[in-house]
Design a protein around this nucleic acid. Sequence first.
DNA 1: CATGAATGAGTATTCATTCAT
DNA 2: TATGAATGAATACTCATTCAT
Lengths: 196, 196, 196, 196
Amino acid sequence: MTTIPRGMGGAALTAAARETFAERGYHGASIRDIAKRAGLSLSALYYWHSSKQDLLAALIEDSINDYFQTCDAALRAAGPDPTDRLTAIVRATVDYRVRRRIESNIAAREARNLEPPHAERLDHLRHAATAQWDTIVDDGVTQRIFGCQHPIDARRAIQAACNAIAQWYDPTGDVGPVELADRYVTIALRIVDHQG
Amino acid sequence: MTTIPRGMGGAALTAAARETFAERGYHGASIRDIAKRAGLSLSALYYWHSSKQDLLAALIEDSINDYFQTCDAALRAAGPDPTDRLTAIVRATVDYRVRRRIESNIAAREARNLEPPHAERLDHLRHAATAQWDTIVDDGVTQRIFGCQHPIDARRAIQAACNAIAQWYDPTGDVGPVELADRYVTIALRIVDHQG
Amino acid sequence: MTTIPRGMGGAALTAAARETFAERGYHGASIRDIAKRAGLSLSALYYWHSSKQDLLAALIEDSINDYFQTCDAALRAAGPDPTDRLTAIVRATVDYRVRRRIESNIAAREARNLEPPHAERLDHLRHAATAQWDTIVDDGVTQRIFGCQHPIDARRAIQAACNAIAQWYDPTGDVGPVELADRYVTIALRIVDHQG
Amino acid sequence: MTTIPRGMGGAALTAAARETFAERGYHGASIRDIAKRAGLSLSALYYWHSSKQDLLAALIEDSINDYFQTCDAALRAAGPDPTDRLTAIVRATVDYRVRRRIESNIAAREARNLEPPHAERLDHLRHAATAQWDTIVDDGVTQRIFGCQHPIDARRAIQAACNAIAQWYDPTGDVGPVELADRYVTIALRIVDHQG
DNA sequence: CATGAATGAGTATTCATTCAT
DNA sequence: TATGAATGAATACTCATTCAT
């Protein structure tokens, strides 16, 4: 697993890469742009990161790890009840999409540009996340707490709605992350047809 | 990679561009790849299309126009009732995302690579579509047919769910477009808290 | 962009080539520009002229032939006196540079882009012209009518001055070709140090 | 085509560009030819010069600046007398055309291929040079030292004669720059009808 | 740690030209 | 006569990457 190097140059490059990939996409961004934005030379970039691909992978993996930690903590705190668990994972997802809006968009849009070693690790993580969501919804349906007839479609709809937040959320707007999470919990519970 | 009959180069190139942009993204796709895939020379590509940008714009605009026509027809047939109208626009959207899955993904992912003249036209269309959705949800809320407290978030969630279909739908799978539209209408009505 | 009378495609192309070569130079002009300017298709251009090179050669040779005819006529009318002959050839040259200003500039600037068969013919003509000028000046010096000590430099100076006319002459200005020729005859006679 | 010492690429490329532009003209010269002639890669060319246009502009501006410095020094040394000043500027011009024969030809032939920012600067310089010449000739005419009736045509003829030197001068020939300048001073004084 | 100099493969695009109709 | 469709080679330029210092 690639880690983001600590130190002034490394941090500046990571920040510059994040902004540049977000604005122009992986293929549209040139490492010259990134180095210039970081105020460093091209060669300095290669001191910190072995390739453009590595820069992207570091960014995405760091962000995804954050997401998994956020989810795990929330689910550990939530206990076994499907409603609590769905609430927890929706809150964690909304929180992550807002807090790491930019990396989150990069992860969503540019993941397909990751090459085999990184791509496989990411696929595995994604599969695990999907399983986590599916388990929660399935449990709720089995326990007749959720009335929806197509749990997979419900899960897809909730995830899509949460993921889209990163595309439109304005951190300077007047809906804060907590209020937003409340609203999306409500939407999620409606989608699974929560029997309240 | 079949031989293209003389005079049919334009269509072959459009099809090749669609597949290539979908697989690799706008910046990741090279026009050499596109021409090769179409079984024609690079120069033939420029005979039919004035630039790579033009190829992308044509693809996206054609697809978006299709979407608008589909929606307009559905809404004209639906009459004034908000439930009918929401049902109609969700059906039209699901239909479009399934029917033009590939272009639909290109439009969603690569629109930001459109340059000013095309980008502005597209922005305008997107704004019009959003207004259409908002009007429907707002009408339902005003008439107390929909109980949701945050109509804009509801609209965003529904659109995100429908749009995501193009990312995972498998045309060879066992859920057909009509059944899928039924399921998404159900989800949409739940999101707006339809009072049935 | 004038309309092309049927069968006059050749003339339209010659005119278009003249303007385009004059504006952009041989290598800077594209054969597409020329065809478009002539209001014809690319293929029509190739019906009339076998190549871009042929288009340039036709233009230059036509113009050079005109120059030689003008000079020959003037010198035949002038008789044997060196002063008369120098006057005649300067008048003929000024007349040509004004009358065929554009082709004259093309011939001067683009001749080096002519390929072997045409280039050799042109070199031969240029050499003949130089010999004609040199003979006149040498005769004047031998007969002590011209006092200049370096007849070749004198000839070069006169030719350069006359040739430059095509670069600055404004046909809408208030100095007509006859008055201009008078002035350049005066200059030429001073350069050779005419003993008047 | 010797090997270029590391760090000397810029100069080698400038020299190669000078030769290539002189031989084939701006549009006829390809940057591949230039790089190859310099014994460097295409990319090295772009490391040192931002574009083909930039290469041309640098060459021309450098050469023109040389000309202006040469003229200014000569005129400062010459004092106020029109004959001295005309002699000085003719000597400076001949010196420049011989000393920087190749760049001088490039400046004359390829200036029209300069794009707006550079073209405007050059136009301004050219206008200033013309004014300098005109002032000298006008002063001589006003003071009845020069008898010519059309000072502008006289100036044009002198300039054209001097400029043409770069087209035919052979540095291995037997007329050196000083002797040549003497001859052109004589020609110039005759053109303005110097009252000696 | 960091840079200046360099590279080879690749980019989108335009060229003069050809050919079947 | 004339054209619409196509081509291969060339165009200027950018890419990610390397390496000696």
